[in-house]
Amino acid sequence: MRRLVRDNALAACFLLLFLLSLAGQSVAGTAAYNEDQVAEGGAPVTWLQYVTSSTFAVDVAENWQSEYLQFFLYILITVWLIQRGSPESKKRGEEGLESDAEQKVGRFAGAGSPAWAAAGGWRRTLFSHSLGLAMGLIFLLSWLAQSVAGLAAYDEERLARLEDPVGWGGYVLSAEFWNRTLQNWQSEFLAVASMVLLAIFLRERGSPQSKKVGDPHSATASSG
């Protein structure tokens, strides 16, 4: 049991942080929502009513989509683009999908390789891109969820202002939808660019996301 926990500590730690943060967001969100409700002469809602509301759903989904987009693009773009000195980049000359031997697929698969890496045809193709596809799919679903939940929250606000509701098509073309979307995207892209550049010159001893402390700044694709 202790070994199981230790072997999965990284995932468990972040899942726990996720659940605690989501719970905290739901409590703080309920309080903030009720402040507005009372100020406008409405009745406060319960925690359960808030967490099943479109307001909470759109706040959650808009952050999810941008995080998954960030990882999806990082996974995909680092196949083709390199950054000299970055511990998370491939070396110059390694850009692209690489050979079957380098990727250990087909006849180059080892005894411990996943079955679909050794297989041919669509199974190998699908498995070869399964991480990017999964991240991309979760991004699209989260973005769609943001649009559906956002529409409900947006049209409720419009009706409260004595304006006509806009419908899904109108919402995904609205300034509100793109403001919510792009304000999340810009922060994700900045964070990735910062990480790529800062990791060239700065170190975090012991972290696999960093180069070894004594590695030269020009060293690429090493971790410590």
């Binding site: 009706l159 004595l162 006509d164």
Partner: peptide, 29 residues
Amino acid sequence: DVWGDEARVRLDGDTLFLHRFPEGWRIRA
């Protein structure tokens, strides 16, 4: 149209806006 606690009813020649209170729907406009 009903979205959350707000609603709009379009009729021939008139439009009403309603809000849901704990005691039920009431006319806002």
